[in-house]
Design a protein around this nucleic acid. Structure first.
Lengths: 205, 205
DNA sequence: TCTTTAATTGGTCAAATGATCAACGACGGG
DNA sequence: CCCGTCGTTGATCATTTGACCAATTAAAGA
């Protein structure tokens, strides 16, 4: 019992992959909080390792940030969303709501939103690539579906979909970037937004 | 003619207020571009002055950034918007469109959006204060107006207005934060968004 | 248990950065 | 024309920060 060093003891000798994972985890959390200009020393301190060890696993801070970006974006884009969106056996409204419920669940995280925004400010090409992907793989099919269901004289454009999308994303921005109070459950708000949108193109529920 | 030093010559002896203005102007442009972590040296170089001179006018970098925030936000909020919004002699739709045309004109600038977003990421209280102001002075009256015009069984909530607002702001975010292509004229998109919104609460044009 | 491997660390360097100050010199007043 | 004020500058300091390396030591294999 006198041997109380168990908790605060020196941490040593992790398998390289495990250590790398741990570093990236800590880096995601750290850079999300303090911004991409955070220092390697503070990050190392928070990760419970020495600063020098970072350079055992990453050649430079930029390389570490690359790993952070990869971690944050990887698998946040579910491959079944395109199929969900275009599955005409289900009602359109239900498809959209299911999609945005899952999308919000994946995107509305402190780490994701803040790192994504910081990357945008830093001029990383990542954001453009990601949002091009969102447009091509998610919004474009969604546009097709809505056009298919809409009256010929009330056809939406891509910009209208960006407007719907942005109104929803803005919830996350208010919460995680501006630290403003937002509803705990975002789905009712999203639901009403989607309903207004569909009604605007004369699509019944 | 041999005296060609006029353009590249040493700049000296400006009146203190003029110099201060010039520094703040340059700082707004500089920090919007490179982020709040930009250096005083680079800023000074861009402003065509020495780095030491910055500290003649501002006690610290933080103090300079305060001046930048003040400059960017000051008078971007027109005092006649509340009156415009609540002027029931004009049709509601027209009021909203006029307001958002002016609001977008004031807000959709590279400097404003980027510095505002960077301040949010940096945890500045400024964003919360500004958006509280937007909610209290603009969106709350707007909510009242729409509720007044809406059917009793289809009353919007504040979150619905944030949704409308966010969808519009997202246009500026896409353009200036993510550097994505957006329509040159945003008003048609805003117009359709507002029309969908009003229709969603059963308000005719 | 001993040896070997390599994960980890303390120490250190060079460059960058916020901040300071004595000295210079442009401009207005006498 | 000279002088004094004060806006401006070059030099410099103390830290911070990204990056590196030789020495240390925990853990696996024989």
């Amino acid at each position: 019992m006198a041997d109380g060093m168990a908790l605060t003891a020196r941490r040593k000798r992790l398998a390289p992959e495990a250590r790398r994972e741990q570093i990236v985890d800590a880096a995601v959390c750290y850079f999300a909080e303090v911004g991409l200009a955070g220092t390697t020393r503070d990050l190392a301190k928070r990760a419970g390792i020495t600063q020098a060890l970072l350079y055992q696993y990453f050649g430079s801070k930029a390389e570490l940030l690359e790993a952070v970006f990869a971690r944050v974006y990887l698998d946040r884009m579910s491959p079944h969303w395109p199929g969900l969106i275009t599955d005409r056996r289900r009602p359109l409204r239900e498809r959209i709501l299911t999609f945005y419920a899952e999308y919000a669940g994946a995107i509305f995280s402190y780490e994701w939103l803040r790192i994504f925004m910081a990357a945008g400010l830093a001029g990383e090409a990542l954001n453009r690539r990601y949002l091009d992907h969102v447009r091509d793989v998610l919004l474009a099919p969604l546009l097709d579906e809505i056009r298919f269901a809409a009256r010929p004289d009330a056809q939406p454009e891509m910009e209208d979909l960006w407007n719907l999308h942005g109104g929803i994303i803005y919830l996350g921005i208010r919460r995680h970037i501006y630290h403003l109070p937002t509803p705990d459950d975002v789905m009712p708000v999203i639901e009403r937004a989607v309903d207004r949108f569909l009604a605007g193109f004369a699509i019944g529920q």
